[in-house]
Design a protein around this nucleic acid. Structure first.
Length: 443
RNA sequence: GACCCGUUCGUCUAUCGGUUAGGACUCCAGAUUUUCAUUCUGGCAAGAAGGGUUCGAUUCCCUUACGGGUCGCCA
């Protein structure tokens, strides 16, 4: 069987993580089985559709790397891939319903007459679910065509899936109760239904339903905040699906290899921002330094166009690679390496100033000045010399030096800082810091 | 309200009737690192409740509670 899946968003808003994950599962399933993944834009709601939303969805999917085999900008044998252009197809299938006597007029609209019987679906995730259509109050005949002649979602969605040869419909659990309706339509058409898999919804951390306005809901904010697409894909995959062993960090290719609908959970999952950030850090760490520098530079340039990147940016990036979880933390983390105007942490400054090594920083600055051929090693040798003369351990001078150079207690390895800053800036900063110690109005 | 689906540490999850209920995020404590971090080790923390079935239930069944979903001429 040649597997064909699809993602069918309607361009009425930006892509949100729930939709992204639905797209991801469809993509993973198709790729795993060597099948096709189709993108169909369900743009039939003329009032709510916007070109911006359409672009946002396509951009979001492209950013995640969920490439489609057929869809907009990727013609296939089952187009068009904009639902609004499929009117003739819809008309033809509607006629079949008319011919079969399965629709009737009601207030100008057309309703589909359900068969009054229990309808059982076999869902790959939820198992067997039966809805009793003998209870008419619970399952009134549904409108398939409005009085203005347009078709409703249930009708076009089913028709397009059938026309496009979709074999597996993977969608959110919010569609579970729609499925028997769709099954009835398909039966009326006299064709075989696709296989269904309803995946659990994504909830907010507090358990409420995640909607567009909630934190982390809009996919578009992920690139801005410095998430790597692979990290988001990894995290989303683990929300509702489990590899069944203890591994968690996966590249897309590994997810494709291991993905299975059998291993999809039935309970809704809450979105954990902390773990998502941690996941991003893991993927950041996995990049080789050159790749990391390139990624960081691109992110920096896109989000801080006013700040030109220095020539030594790759070295700065390398020094900071393991220091943060999201790329947008980089500017603040790198400020003291990028320029001389940066905030100083009061607590770290106070701690450094009260260190027994603090009084010897002035001597260290002088030593720095005297180094002919600057290197981190030479600077450390100088530090060791000063420490020895002062009768303290070199390690005790490390923290004050770090604070003098960076204005904070946390940061890159000292060697990296020394290398990047060079002799002049290092010596100056240490001297300024040491001078400040003598002044009663020192910060 | 009716109808569906669900319920294991705070969160994501493993467990195909017999386990000291495992891993991960978060948090805490140690160790290592002459600095920061990384890393490593350890710790806190769970089967919603009540009935069954069974020699034995987190696992199977029922009830209740709770959570989510759906009940449109939206998608």
């Amino acid at each position: 069987m040649n597997v064909r899946t699809r993602f069918a968003p309607s361009p009425t808003g930006s892509l949100h993580v729930g939709g992204a994950r639905t797209a991801l599962f469809n993509w993973l399933f198709a790729r795993h089985h060597g099948g096709s993944y189709i993108l169909r834009v369900e743009d039939t709601d003329e009032v709510r559709n916007t070109p911006e939303a359409r672009a946002a969805i396509l951009d979001g999917l492209a950013w995640l790397g969920l490439d489609w085999d057929e869809g907009p900008d990727k013609p296939g044998d089952h187009g068009p891939y904009y639902q609004s252009e499929r009117r003739d197809i819809h008309d033809a299938w509607f006629q079949r319903l008319v011919d079969a006597g399965r629709v009737y007029r009601d207030d100008g609209a057309w309703r589909f007459r359900f068969e009054r019987k229990p309808v059982t679906m076999r869902d790959l995730v939820c198992g067997e679910v039966t809805i009793d259509y003998r209870d008419e109050s619970n399952t009134p005949d549904m409108v398939v065509r409005r009085s203005d002649g347009s078709y409703v979602f249930h009708f076009v969605n089913v028709v397009d899936d059938l026309e496009m040869g979709v074999t597996h419909v993977i969608r959110g659990e919010d569609h579970l109760m729609n499925t028997p309706k769709h099954l009835q339509l398909i039966e009326a058409f006299g064709v075989a239904p696709p296989v269904y898999a309803h995946i659990p919804l994504i909830l907010n951390p507090d358990g409420s339903k995640m909607s567009k306005r909630d934190a982390g809901a809009a996919l578009s904010e992920y690139p801005r905040r410095g998430f790597l697409p692979h990290a988001v894909v990894n995290f989303l995959a683990l929300l509702g699906w489990s590899p069944k062993d203890d591994s968690e960090i996966f590249a897309p290719g590994e997810l494709i290899e291991r993905f299975s609908l059998d291993a999809v959970n039935r309970a809704p999952a809450r979105f954990d921002h902390e773990k998502c950030a941690w996941m991003n850090q893991q993927h950041l760490l996995a990049l080789d330094p050159a790749e990391f520098a390139e990624t960081a530079a691109a992110h920096f340039a896109a989000n801080h166009p006013a700040t030109p990147l220095p020539a030594n940016f790759p070295a700065i990036a390398a020094a900071l690679q393991e220091k943060f979880r999201l790329l947008d933390e980089l500017p603040a983390a790198a400020d003291f390496l990028l320029g001389d105007d940066y905030p100083r942490d009061k607590a770290a400054t106070a701690k450094a100033a009260s260190s027994p090594a603090a009084p010897h920083l002035a001597a260290l600055a002088a030593k720095f000045d005297g180094i002919e051929s600057w290197s981190a090693q030479a600077a450390k040798d100088a530090l060791a010399g000063v420490a020895k003369a002062a009768g303290i351990k070199p390690g005790q001078m490390m923290f004050p030096l770090r604070v003098a150079l960076s204005g904070r207690g946390h940061g890159p390895d000292l060697s990296a800082i020394l290398d990047i800053l060079g002799r002049e800036r290092s010596a100056t900063r240490v001297r300024v810091f040491a001078d400040g110690l003598d002044s009663p109005i020192a910060e």
